[in-house]
Nucleic acid binder design. Structure first.
Lengths: 345, 345
DNA sequence: ATTAGCACTCAACCAAAAAGAGTGCTAACA
DNA sequence: TGTTAGCACTCTTTTTGGTTGAGTGCTAAT
C-alpha cells in the first residue's frame, strides 16, 4: 500500500491533534479538523489503512487512534524536515559568567525545562584526553597547599592538600615553574613514568611534594571521568502529561532522572552516535534507557572548545512538540557555540 | 481532662502502630497490641477522650484513628526524650576529599536518603561575613587571568577574566603580594572605598587590574550569598508512602524539592531558630514550607569551622521514624564536626 | 470503673447496567 | 469507482445499587 497525499494529511492531523490533547483521536474529530473535506467514514477507511501500515494504533477496539512509534518517527523524519528552519530567538540565555560552568549548566537546564515544559538534562563536558593547560600551587597557610588545575576548555579544579613538610614561598615558585614547563600540553595519559621521574629529579629536595601533587591532579581528573556531572531540571513537568503521571510510571521516570548513573548511558549513547547535526531523537523503545520507553528523548551534543563535549537532553511524552524542541535545541547549540567560541578567542 | 498514664500508653501504641502500617488503627488492634490488658471497649472510650483532646483524629466516622500533628508533637517531645541516646554508628561516611565540598555534600545527601528512605536535603555553607583568607592571580595564557579566592572554611572560588592589558609575570607576583597583604582577614563588607583606593595607589600602573579583580571577587561571593547551593536526594522515596504518593501531592512535593528557592526558606528558618541541639522537628503545618504540610521535616544545622553553617533536612511522612532520623542526624553531626575539625587542624 | 453487646456508619468492593465514543461494514449515491 | 450515510456492534467509562467489614458510640450489665 502506498502512503499517498491524503493519507499523509490525515496522519499529520492525527498526530498533531493527539499531541495537543493527549487523547486518542477518532475519525469524526479528524473529519472536522481537516476542514470537512472528507467525511468521517472516509477517514475511517484511511485510518484503517494507516493502522495496517503501522503508523497508528488503537489502544482498544472502540477507541480512537494514537500514533505509533513509527508514526512519530515519520513525523519527525519527514514532516518536520519540510519546514524551514526559521531560527527563533531563545529567551536570552543567562550565560554571563562562564568561569562558573556548574552554575551555567544548572541555569541552562532550568531555562530549557521551563521553556519546553518537559524535563531537561544537561551533562557537563567529558574530561577525557584533555590537555593540561596550567597548574598552580599556592601555600594558603602553614602546611596547606592549594592545587589549581586548568585543562583545555578552561575547566578548573581545586584540591587542597595537607603536607607534613614545610616549604618556602620561593620553593613553591620554583615548583610552579617546574610543573608548568614540564606538564603543560600533556594529557593525563601522557604523564607517564618517564615524565614523572624526570620531574622528581629536577625537583630535588621536594620530590615528595611533586608526588603528592601529581597524585592529586590525577585523582581529581580521574574522579571526574567516572562521574561526569549531570544536572536535571523540570523533572516534575512530567506530571503535566496524564499518560506519564500515573504513580508507577512517574516514580520510575523520576527515579531515573534522579540517579545520574542511568542518565550517563544516555549521554554516552548520544555522544557516540554522531548524527549530522548532533541532534538525536529517540522515540519510545528506541531510547537507550529502558525507563523512558513511554517517552521521547531528544539529545543534542554541544561542544565547548577543543573537542570538549557535553550532552543536552529533553525528556517528554511521545507526543512532545518536536518542532519546538528541535528548534529550541538548534538555537541553543548555535548560541552555545558562539558563546564559547568568543570566550575562547 | 488529664493525660494519665493509660492514655499515654494508648496514644503511644496508636502512634507506633500507625507508623508501622500507615493505616488508621482501631480499638481492637490496640487492645491486642498492649497485651490485652484492656478491652477494645475501654480503649474506645480512651480514644474518644484522646480525640477530644486533639491528639488523634478520625479520617472518617467509621475508621480507626491516626495521630494528629499534636499527637506526633507529643511523641517527639515527650516519648523520645525518655529514650537514652545510644549512638549508633552511621554507615561510614564518604568524606575523604574535603577539598571538593560539592561532591561531599551530594554524597552525603544521597547516603542520608538511602539510609532513611526519606527525602534528604543539604545546603552548602552560607558564605556570609566570611573572611578572605587567600587570593591568587595567575596568568593562564595571554590576556587571561585566573583568580582563585579562598575564604575561611576553605571554600574555594575560581573566576576567569579576560584582560585587554598585557601584564608580565613579575607584575602578577607583585599584585599577588599586594592583594594578600592588604585583603587577608577582611570580610567583604570591610573592603570599603578606603581599602580600595589605598590598594589602587599602591598598584601603580595596574589599577585597572585591581579594579577588575576586586569586582570579580565581590561578584563571586555575592552570587553565592544569594543562592546557597542546595542538594537533594531521594526525592522519589516519597512514593514509598501511599499517603504522600497520590499524583497531586507527589507533584507538589517533588516540585518543591526541585525548586531550591523554596527550600531556601527552610534553610533560613532552620538556621535561625536555634534549638539547643541544632535539630528541629516540624510536623505538618508547623513547617515553614506550605507544600510540606502533609509531611514532617527534620532539620539540623552543621558547622564547618569558623561559623560557617549549613543545614541538613529530612523530609518524610508524618509517621516517619523519628527515633531513627534523630539518631542518624545526631550521629552525622558528630561525625561532621569531627571531620571538619580535624581537617581544620 | 470496666466490659459485653448491639445498632449504626461509612469506605471499599463488586457486579451489573447504562452511557458514550468510536469502529467496521453495507448499501446507496454521485 | 470513490465517497458517504447509517446502523449494528464493541469496548471503555461511568453510574448505580447492593454487600461486606471494620470500627465506632452508646447502653446496660458486671
Amino acid at each position: 500500500m502506498e502512503l499517498d497525499e491524503r493519507k499523509v494529511t490525515i496522519l499529520k492531523a492525527i498526530i498533531k491533534n493527539y499531541m495537543e490533547t493527549g487523547e486518542p483521536v477518532g475519525s469524526r474529530t479528524i473529519s472536522k479538523y481537516v476542514n470537512s473535506k472528507w467525511s468521517s467514514a472516509t477517514i475511517r477507511n484511511e485510518m484503517s489503512d494507516l493502522e495496517e501500515m503501522g503508523y497508528i494504533v488503537q489502544p482498544h477496539t472502540s477507541a480512537g487512534r494514537i500514533p505509533s512509534d513509527k508514526g512519530y518517527r515519520f513525523y519527525v523524519d519527514r514532516i518536520l524536515e519540510e519546514k524551514d528552519n526559521e531560527v527563533t530567538e531563545i529567551k536570552e540565555l543567562m550565560v554571563q559568567r562562564v568561569g562558573r560552568l556548574e552554575l551555567v549548566l544548572k541555569a541552562l537546564a532550568k531555562s530549557l525545562a521551563s521553556n519546553t515544559n518537559y524535563a531537561a538534562m544537561i551533562s557537563g563536558p567529558r574530561y577525557h584526553r584533555n590537555k593540561l593547560k596550567f597548574i598552580q600551587l599556592s601555600k594558603v597557610e602553614r602546611g596547606r597547599l592549594l592545587i589549581v588545575t586548568v585543562v583545555e576548555g578552561n575547566i578548573i579544579k581545586n584540591t587542597m592538600v595537607t603536607m607534613d613538610e614545610e616549604i618556602s614561598d620561593e620553593e613553591i615558585l620554583n615548583l610552579n615553574i617546574l610543573l608548568n614547563t614540564n606538564l603543560n600540553g600533556l594529557t593525563i595519559e601522557e604523564i607517564n613514568l618517564g615524565v614523572i621521574s624526570r620531574l622528581k629529579e629536577q625537583a630535588g629536595a621536594h620530590r615528595q611534594v611533586v608526588d603528592l601533587v601529581l597524585n592529586e591532579v590525577a585523582a581529581a581528573i580521574k574522579a571526574d571521568e567516572d562521574d561526569v556531572q549531570i544536572y536535571t531540571s523540570g523533572a516534575t513537568n512530567i506530571f503535566k502529561y496524564p499518560e506519564l503521571s500515573d504513580s508507577q510510571k512517574a516514580r520510575e521516570l523520576l527515579s531515573t532522572l534522579e540517579h545520574t548513573e542511568t542518565l550517563q548511558e544516555l549521554v554516552n549513547e548520544a555522544g557516540g552516535a554522531e548524527s549530522e547535526t548532533g541532534i538525536q531523537v529517540y522515540i519510545g523503545d528506541e531510547s537507550p534507557v529502558q525507563a523512558m520507553k513511554d517517552c521521547s528523548v531528544v539529545t543534542a551534543s554541544y561542544e565547548l572548545g577543543e573537542g570538549l563535549k557535553g550532552t543536552i537532553g529533553i525528556i517528554g511524552p511521545k507526543r512532545m512538540d518536536y518542532e519546538k524542541v528541535l528548534k529550541t535545541l538548534r538555537t541553543l547549540m548555535t548560541q552555545l557555540d558562539a558563546t564559547f567560541k568568543k570566550e575562547e578567542r
